[in-house]
Every structure is written in structure tokens, then in C-alpha cells.
């Protein structure tokens, strides 16, 4: 079990450690700014939030839904406070379609420009908390490839906490169950093993 921290909690002295993600320095102390799980790496104190919406970052792969069309492009909604603009000169997209895209550029007021779009057909769109996506993927993709192997589904994972699952109806349901368990037990350790057990017992 990793340590759960609350906002305003002092993590370490700023002289000994560096402040990483979701932390700030106040009066010589590193302080958490969110409710999350503390992780320490390379002398950096990072806090991984246990909630909250996706914050767009450059080069992230996201799964979004086309919400409206503009002149020579469309607006994509992707489970964030912000929407993305995609230029679609070459092909036509209609409202309601699910797409996979790469974030090309994020400016200082978080306006997003995306590219490398790919339409996703015939799958199911599943949502989860964005901060647990690394947990779902696992170390070097161990968790996600295990789920893929066990169920035989095609899965695309968006960094924004959206999954697109394509496969047999029953298998898709199993993936959903696994995702839900990951989300509930994300702060605990030894999760890959438990997910493996969960998937095995159903077959």
C-alpha cells in the first residue's frame, strides 16, 4: 500500500528532495496540492491524483468524440475541461464519431490542437479516472497486454482516461470488469496478479 496524501500535507524538506508533479514548495517544505498517492523517484516527490479531469499534454494519445464541425475542421471533446481542434481537410468526420488522436500542441491557456487522427468503429467506449491510466498500462505495458491476451480484445487506451474496446460481447464485459477493479484498487500493490486471477476465474 502506497501512502495516500491529502492537499496541504507536508511531504519532505525542500532541501533534501525535489518537488515533482502536483506539489509546491512553501516555507522550505514540499507540500502536496492534491488528494493522491505519493510516489518517490530519483529524489523527486510526485503525487499522483486520485481524481480530477485530464489535463492535456503534448504528444499524448487521446480518445475523443466529435462534438461539432467548424470550417475545415472539427471540435473534439475528450473528458477534460478543454476541447481540441482537429483540422480535417482530407477526410470527412461527422458529429458523434469516436476518434483516436495525438495532441500536437497545447498553448498557455490550454487550447489544444490535435492531429494523426484515426476513426474507431464498432467498439465500446469506456471511461476511467485519467490518473489511473499508467496503472492500467502497467510496467512496460505488462497489465494491458495481459488483459489483451486473456480476452482477445482489441483495446486502445487514451491518456485522457478513455478506452475503446472491440471484441466479443462477453469478452468486452470482462475487460470492463478488470478496468473497474483497477480503478478501485489503484493505490494498492500487486494489482497485476489480482487482475490475472480475476480474468482467469471467469473463463
Amino acid at each position: 500500500m502506497r501512502k495516500i496524501v491529502i492537499p496541504g500535507e507536508k511531504l519532505a524538506s525542500a532541501e533534501e528532495k525535489n518537488n515533482g508533479d502536483h506539489t509546491f514548495v512553501e516555507e522550505g517544505k514540499i507540500v502536496s496540492e492534491v488528494f493522491g498517492v505519493l510516489t518517490e523517484s530519483n529524489n523527486y516527490m510526485n503525487v499522483n491524483p486520485l481524481g480530477g479531469r485530464y489535463i492535456p499534454r503534448e504528444d499524448d494519445k487521446i480518445i475523443g468524440v466529435v462534438t461539432s464541425k467548424k470550417y475545415k475542421g472539427c471540435i473534439i471533446e475528450f473528458n477534460s475541461a478543454y476541447t481540441a481542434y482537429v483540422s480535417t481537410e482530407d477526410s470527412d468526420y461527422s458529429v458523434g464519431e469516436v476518434i483516436l488522436a495525438k495532441i500536437e500542441d497545447v498553448n498557455e491557456v490550454n487550447e489544444v490542437r490535435a492531429s494523426d487522427i484515426m476513426k474507431l468503429y464498432d467498439g465500446k467506449l469506456v471511461e476511467m479516472t485519467p490518473s489511473f491510466v499508467p496503472r492500467l498500462i502497467g510496467r512496460k505495458g505488462s497489465m494491458i497486454s495481459m488483459i489483451k491476451d486473456e480476452t482477445g480484445c482489441t483495446i486502445f487506451v487514451g491518456r485522457n482516461g478513455r478506452l475503446w474496446i472491440k471484441g466479443d460481447k462477453e469478452q468486452v464485459r470482462r475487460v470492463e470488469k478488470a478496468v473497474k477493479k483497477i480503478e478501485e484498487e489503484a493505490p494498492t500493490s500487486g494489482l497485476t496478479k489480482r487482475i490475472e486471477e480475476l480474468l482467469e476465474e471467469k473463463t
Binding site: 492537499p7 507540500v31 492534491v34 488528494f35 481524481g51 480530477g52
Partner: peptide, 11 residues
């Protein structure tokens, strides 16, 4: 607010 993951200096 903390549950929603909103960053804050203190609760």
C-alpha cells in the same frame, strides 16, 4: 473539492 482532484494549498 479535494475528492474532485482540484489542486489547493490547504483544505
Amino acid at each position: 473539492l479535494a475528492d474532485a482532484g482540484v489542486p489547493m494549498k490547504d483544505m
